[in-house]
């Protein structure tokens, strides 16, 4: 039996939580799944972040996302962040609206998230709220994820080297909430450089230590074939 892969459905609001040090994992998850099979510009609104940490174009290109598609907005405060996100969700033709914030987000509540949902439903744009170091709070979001970096499958060591190089990007994803989906499950997703997009490697890693002790373990014996997820 095949387990469903995590998806960030169009026209819905998704929340991605992560620890402050795992922000690259959360960003890769949101960008990788959010822009899958979607054309158009990506609006990234960043607000209340630690200064001096910027998106890097060549790294995005390695993840198969053309940096030229990105429209970066720097919001001064939470209100500006939410406002810019709402403007983006109302704009037709965007591939993804990504809001990135750190710590508690003032003004984001059930009403604000419902407003996002209504705007996203009309334009059929996925809206992802990437929240670093923040506590989940009630909202009208369709899904909520906990994303962290996971140990990668190291590459073969070059001759003469004592250590093996890190492998492809690997992230551990837990569905904290998924309306009509398998909430509570955990995936280990590896970036697929050939096809773009993530593929599920949960269970196929053997003795990969689970990074999060509290994380629920995957169903036993679930050795999975490659998921045929492709990006355009």
């Amino acid at each position: 039996m095949r387990r469903p892969m995590p998806v960030l459905a169009a026209g819905q609001v998704h929340e991605v939580h992560g620890e402050g040090d795992d922000r690259a994992a959360g960003l890769a998850f949101a960008l990788g799944l959010g822009t899958a099979n979607r054309q158009g510009a990506v609006l990234v609104v960043r607000g209340a972040l630690r200064q001096g940490l910027g998106l890097y174009g060549e790294g995005l290109a390695r993840l198969g996302i053309d940096p030229a598609r990105l429209l970066l907005v720097e919001a001064r405060d939470a209100a500006a962040l939410l406002r810019a996100g709402l403007e983006g969700a109302r704009c037709p033709g965007l591939a993804l609206v990504l809001l990135e914030s750190e710590g508690p987000l003032k003004g984001y509540d059930l009403t604000a998230s419902r407003r996002f949902v209504l705007a996203a439903e009309r334009t059929q744009t996925p809206l992802v709220l990437l929240r670093h170091a923040a506590r989940p709070q009630p909202s009208a979001a369709h899904t909520r994820w906990q994303v962290a970096s996971a140990p990668s499958l190291p590459l073969e060591a070059p001759p003469g080297a004592q250590v093996r190089p890190p492998g492809l990007p690997m992230i551990a994803v837990e569905a904290l909430r998924w309306r009509g989906g398998p909430a509570g499950q955990t995936w280990h997703l590896q970036w697929d450089e050939q096809h773009g997009g993530f593929r599920d490697t949960t269970g196929s890693l053997g003795g990969t230590p689970n990074r999060n002790e509290n994380a629920r373990t995957a169903p036993s014996g679930a050795v999975l074939p490659m998921a045929a997820l492709r990006t355009g």
Partner: peptide
Amino acid sequence: FHLPAMPRPLLLFD
């Protein structure tokens, strides 16, 4: 952007 030959990070400290 041209695709870099070497791995490059997604986020860069400056």
